[in-house]
């Protein structure tokens, strides 16, 4: 559509007809109200006294009720680092895992859209078997270093000797499906295993546990989205770059990534938001020092009932930086760099 409108602008002065514009504005206005009203409600609730919340709906500050900053004071001033500490943790964990997921995801999805892989199911089964054996071995009290080394060497041995005999191959689509299938199991099923995993590595109550988990959890999403963007980039551009003597990495870095900037930005925002807001894993993998904000939000629903005013304040505090980032990055999504590049 953007392209269409662009065309309209450049070749003829046509704009959407007044009727179309009116309908568009009405629809957009309705949705805007639907989106903004709940957020407005959060905003006013953040300034209400408990008694204002409990005695029926109050809509307007100074008209229906006198605003009070008691919830802000309670959370930000009176309870010390109650909010600032989780806030810092969330920023560190969210940003690091989003950057990592985007980087690894861009690399992988580029590879999946440009190379053809033929993984062999037989080899994969062998690998899983080796892992199972290693786990069994650890359970019968073989030192884990030894078990891992043995399993790895067994696998390599099989792969390098009889591995070529395995028939049947899978395709890129199967790899992609495997990746996305990692998101299918609800977190509650894997909490205890992941908890034990990080405990074995001594990473509980550190940022690494959360960053690694969120990166792994969000990678499949990043790969799937970017694969579509990369596919839509004309391969001719890359070929001409190769002719100019660029390496694969240079092509990726200098040609493909700039061209897919809208996709990168959209993907970055999404993985950041997912990591920023995640609750279940965050609750169990974070310890005393690494607790994240969503945990604090849920925690406001205590035995005395939800502390609506505190929840509102916390949600507003959480959304602010992400929203600012979205405003800044929105230009990139909107600009349509790709079109210009193809033409140029």
């Amino acid at each position: 559509m953007a392209a269409l409108r662009k065309f309209f602008q450049s070749s003829s002065p046509l704009k959407p007809s007044p009727a179309a514009m009116t309908i568009s504005y009405v629809l957009l206005g309705l949705w805007t109200f639907f989106v903004l009203f709940p957020i407005y409600w959060l905003f006013v609730t953040a300034f209400k006294l408990p008694v204002d919340v409990n005695t029926g709906p109050k809509y307007l500050m100074y008209v229906d009720f006198q605003p009070s900053t008691h919830a802000w004071r309670e959370l930000l001033v009176e309870s010390g680092n109650l909010v600032t500490r989780p806030y810092r943790n969330t920023v560190i964990v969210g940003l690091s895992s989003a950057v990592l997921a985007l980087t690894l995801g861009a690399m992988a999805s580029y590879a999946l859209s440009r190379f053809s892989y033929r993984p062999k199911p037989g080899l994969i089964a062998t690998f899983i078997l080796c892992v199972v054996l290693a786990i069994v071995a650890i359970n019968v009290e073989v030192p884990w270093q030894l078990a891992v080394a043995a399993a790895l060497s067994t696998f390599l041995l099989i792969a390098l000797t009889i591995g070529r005999r395995f028939k049947g191959t899978m395709s890129n689509d199967d790899i992609a499906f495997w990746l996305i299938s990692q998101r299918m199991l609800p977190p509650v099923a894997v909490i205890v295993p992941i908890y034990i995993l990080f405990q074995q590595f001594g990473l509980l109550n550190t940022y690494y546990a959360l960053i690694i988990t969120y990166t792994a959890v969000n990678l499949p999403l990043a790969i799937w989205f970017m694969r579509d963007y990369f596919k839509s980039i004309p391969i001719e551009l890359e070929e001409s770059a190769f002719i100019d003597g660029a390496s694969r990495y240079q092509v990726l870095y200098k040609v493909v990534l700039p061209l897919s900037a809208p996709g990168l930005v959209a993907t970055f925002l999404i993985v950041l938001i997912f990591a920023w807001n995640e609750y279940t894993l965050g609750l169990f993998l974070s310890g005393a020092d690494t607790q994240t904000l969503p945990v604090l939000v849920v925690a406001q629903n205590a035995t005395r009932g939800p502390q609506w005013w505190n929840i509102s304040v916390l949600v507003l505090l959480m959304i602010a930086p992400v929203f600012l980032l979205a405003i800044v990055l929105e230009r990139y999504i909107a600009r349509g760099i790709l079109i210009g590049a193809v033409k140029g």
């Binding site: 925690a299 629903n301 205590a302």
Partner: peptide, 26 residues
């Protein structure tokens, strides 16, 4: 004394997982 709080509904499992696995972060 650092008071660390988790949601009421998750307190029981948090204590139990922390202690049973020997993590002892609390």
């Amino acid at each position: 004394v650092n008071v660390i709080t988790v949601p009421f509904a998750d307190l029981y499992q948090t204590i139990l997982t922390d202690q049973a696995t020997g993590t002892n972060s609390y």
